[in-house]
């Protein structure tokens, strides 16, 4: 579907608009929501015969890709993100078309994408949970990521921490993670801190976040994050793992329960992945759920896991949601 030769972005179209014929293929009822301003578009319903290269525009850029492939149309582009993406580009000079497959969701839309681009997320721990969470948030278009971890890459990390390769063993995780993530997108500002979170630095390191992702591997650090999260009223997306199980909850969101209510002090038990063992897919699933909940918080999507604990069992694929 995503044959690059079929696709043109709003910015590319703007640069080439004098040489391309733009054809609006939308039914009349769709045209009001996103008018195609600044382009001399013709309506396909009027029956057009075009020589030369042309650009088909539908509402979100999905219908036109299908039209081109099914009809094997030559010299024809589909406008990525469709009229929705063009409208934003024309009015705000922002090309958001790379996220068109998520802005088409009514729950996200252009306004939600702008919130993501302005969002700041601190990820504490760039291991099994932090790697997938960082990757998912970056590709979703989060504007600012702060990766906090003092650890180095170990060979035993690689099966569940896909940002690292054998050549990275003994290197600082946050430095390698930043390099790998930067290759995926230049749209996110990535800040790194190559020390562990502790009582001395936590206040400063977490101060500028809209959301904290708890991707740490120990309860002591989690309790510290919980205190800061509660005091500063910055929601924290908790994630934990035990063998084939994972837990996720949004804590301290506008007074919702925190980790100290979820597991009152002093919690005992609970082995780390290094001790208990884990398949790499589990942190992948749980880290992605944490990223999903962070996106919901930033965009303002309900329902979410505020005040709830999700337990996912990868063995039988059951989920349990418990009101905290």
């Amino acid at each position: 579907m995503e044959d690059r030769s079929l696709i043109i972005t709003p910015k590319e179209l703007n640069d080439r608009k004098t040489e391309l014929t733009v054809i609006d293929v939308r039914p009349k009822e769709q045209r009001k929501e996103f008018p195609i301003e600044g382009l001399d578009a013709v309506l396909s319903e009027n029956g057009v015969e075009i020589n030369g290269q042309k650009v088909l525009v539908c509402q979100f850029g999905i219908v036109t890709e299908g039209m081109i492939i099914e009809n094997e149309l030559a010299d024809t582009f589909s406008l990525l993100g469709g009229a929705q993406a063009w409208d934003e580009f024309y009015r705000e000079q922002k090309d958001l078309s790379r996220w068109s497959r998520q802005t088409v969701l009514p729950e996200i839309g252009i306004e939600g994408q702008k919130k993501l681009l302005g969002g700041k997320v601190a990820i504490v721990g760039v291991g099994g949970l932090g790697c997938p969470a960082a990757q998912a948030l970056l590709t979703a278009g989060i504007g600012y990521l702060h990766l906090i971890d003092g650890d180095n890459v170990s060979l035993s990390n690689l099966h569940r921490q896909p940002l690292y390769s054998p050549d990275d063993v003994d290197k600082k995780k946050v430095k390698v993670a930043k390099e790998k993530l930067a290759e995926l997108s230049a749209e996110t500002s990535i800040h790194i801190t190559d020390t562990f979170l502790d009582e001395e630095n936590a206040d400063v390191f977490l101060a500028d976040a809209d959301v904290i992702i708890d991707a740490t591997d120990n309860i002591k650090t989690r309790q510290l994050m919980d205190q800061i999260s509660k005091r500063k009223n910055i929601p924290m997306v908790y994630g934990g793992l035990f063998r084939f199980e994972g837990q996720v909850a949004i804590l301290n969101a506008n007074g919702s329960p925190g980790y100290s209510e979820l597991f009152p002090e002093p919690p005992s038990g609970g082995d780390t992945c290094e001790d208990a063992g884990v398949l790499g897919m589990l942190p992948g699933i749980i880290g992605n759920i944490q990223a999903l909940e962070a996106v919901k918080l930033i965009v303002g999507i309900n329902p979410n896991l505020v005040g709830k604990l999700l337990i996912y069992d990868g063995m039988n694929h059951s989920t349990e949601i418990i009101e905290i």
């Binding site: 949970l129 591997d217 035990f242 597991f263 780390t272 992945c273 884990v278």
Partner: peptide, 10 residues
């Protein structure tokens, strides 16, 4: 009734 221990992970 569910009994839920804390987990670490990461």
């Amino acid at each position: 009734v569910a009994f839920i221990p804390p987990v670490q992970g990461g």
